[in-house]
Design a protein around this nucleic acid. Structure first.
Lengths: 353, 353
DNA sequence: TTGAAAGCGCTAACAC
DNA sequence: GTGTTAGCGCTTTCAA
């Protein structure tokens, strides 16, 4: 392996001189020497040892990215966003995926041992116990949370506007003339309080209140954010709406997986979407435009979340002092496709009935 | 920050003693001292500095995971697999995603600077120019490729049996009684020769030959592995099969995205799957079971690919000598669902016609 | 403008 | 068994 020493020797200078040119310390070394050193580096195919540098600088230019549930597809765009920002500043990602809190604690230990300069934690929108993370704060270690709920604490956190998504999705349904609104909600009662279903539900409820529409208990199904859950939810909905109340004409399905499952179940029952029942959802994976019918949904800005988190973290690291804790809430974007139909569809349906 | 020195002081021993207990050098330190040291560590909340250790050990216990096209969903299970294996051995992942070869070259430089102990390269199944990777080989740096084609070189490489997937998928169609077989193939003519479409196509063709079925040119559509591509491919197929040859009764769609697009297009044309046309594909993302109809497909063992690559790499790193170059080919697994129907379906269809 | 030297935190001979 | 010490490759005072 070839080191700074070899370069110095070949260039006929001291090792500190080499270090100076390495660090772009222009004032400290004359152009002629500089050129000689550069040439020596090239000749020897010198590659600086970042570990040695980290050792003395006490900074590895590496951040720990800790992901709860790597199989969460949302993790891909987030990582993408984080990467894009870090790359510009020549920082690197140490990636650890964990499945539970114990794993997370463990990961923090390991990564601190590796001397990462900071952390980004990405998780489902859950209020996990987070003492181990707050400890980082006490120790002055930079970190940013994505999608985790820790409302009472003064931390830096970027998350999605789930309430707004529920609001706008439902408003879209109403704007199309629907008045009989149902919902397939996510796992509201969780070991640790999952927030996104609660908030999306709250958004839905708010619109019903705003337009003075009734919350029909039979039209409210609690499910679990999975494909199968969405499928089953429809079975349940159809089973319990054979009575006088009848079926809703539109459904807010709280995430895209359940929406896809719901689409399949409705199809099997011979119900047409959107003519018999309209569907709107939250979350816009690539296949959402190719479901049958194409899904109208509100897209989650996960890449932006990653970018934002990375930017906050980098500022923190480089300024060496904690920023004012800020909680950034990113809005969802409507992707109106076919699963809600048009106002006309809806009028026609009413005439027929 | 608290170091080995502090621990030594508090335990009233020399720093090497601390180092010994740190490294589990049981023979070198008495149980009493050992306990004292351990206690001191606990009291001081000591956390070993992995960077310092790496420096002297000349090993970071870190591997570089270089991904071409991070937005490739296959990357998630691969990373999962790699992670699982590395975690057991207490190795870590430095993740870099790149979009082109220049980025890859750059990533190698950076990661080498970071002193990673080895590399895993994950890419699309393309024969990229790979001189920069072969240079690693010359320098004796451990690396494993996933899904990249480099047939002529003596490298370690794990990939998917695309030929087998095409073979088995098509055989499945034939076993159901189909004789009029079409294909929507992937991007065969590429800047650098993408292999998986070629191989999957070859598998398809092989079966036709085996059963002496004709390759009808109008039933062969070249597309691009995207949702939209699959959608358009169906438009094209239907447009060019109005003549005497008629339509195929079954289609091998070379990847899952195109299959989903195809399903949508067929639906829009009022063609029923599988009654009017059967569809089989390759690639089994979570939503494949919830398309309409549920997709029969051959699942790609990406997680296993990640595990296998990680295992080979780790063995290499730890044995400190290059293994016999091996090219591991992993088979796909059939996931038979509804998009191909049953033999009976097919017989009925024939009777009707 | 350049070089010598003192570390950064840890490991591993080597000596006691 | 335990302590002393010489590095690992680099940065950064401090002198020259």
């Amino acid at each position: 392996v070839i080191t700074i020493k070899d370069v110095a020797e070949r260039a006929g200078v001291g090792i500190s001189t080499v270090s100076y040119v390495l660090n772009g310390n222009l004032k400290r070394v004359g152009p002629a020497t500089r050129e000689r050193v550069l040439e020596a580096m090239r000749d020897l195919n010198y590659r600086p040892n970042a570990v040695a540098r980290s050792m003395v600088k006490r900074s590895t230019k590496t951040i720990g990215l800790v992901i709860m549930e790597l199989d969460n597809p949302l993790f891909v765009p987030v990582t993408h966003g984080v990467e894009a920002i870090l790359r510009d500043e020549d920082y690197h990602i140490l990636l650890v995926s964990v499945v539970d809190l114990e794993g997370e604690v463990q990961a923090i230990e390991t990564l601190r041992s590796q001397q990462v300069d900071g952390f980004i934690f990405m998780s489902l929108s859950i209020r996990y116990p987070s003492d181990h993370i707050l400890r980082l704060k006490e120790e002055g270690i930079p970190f940013v949370l994505i999608n985790r709920y820790l409302e009472d604490s003064e931390v830096n956190l970027v998350r999605i506007d789930d309430f707004g998504a529920g609001l706008e999705a439902t408003r879209h349904l109403v704007s199309l003339g629907h008045t009989k609104l149902g919902i397939i909600s996510g796992p509201i009662y969780n070991k640790w309080d999952r927030r996104s279903p609660i908030q999306r539900y709250a958004g839905w409820e708010q619109i019903l209140k705003e337009y003075e529409l009734p919350v029909q208990p039979e039209w409210v199904i609690l499910s679990d954010y999975t494909f199968e859950g969405g499928y089953q939810a429809i079975q349940q909905l159809l089973a319990q709406t054979t009575g006088a109340v009848g079926r809703p004409t539109a459904l807010f399905v709280a995430n895209e997986s359940m929406a896809v499952g719901a689409l399949q179940a409705l199809h099997e029952h011979g119900l047409r979407v959107p003519q018999d029942i309209a569907i709107v959802s939250v979350g816009d994976p690539p296949f959402a435009a190719y479901t049958i019918p194409a899904l109208s949904t509100f897209s989650l800005p996960m890449e932006e979340a990653g970018q934002t988190a990375a930017r906050i973290l980098l500022d923190w690291i480089k300024s060496e002092k904690a920023p004012e804790p800020q909680q950034i809430v990113l809005p969802c974007t409507p992707r109106i496709r076919q699963s809600c139909g048009t106002k006309l569809n809806n009028l026609e349906r009413k005439l027929w009935i």
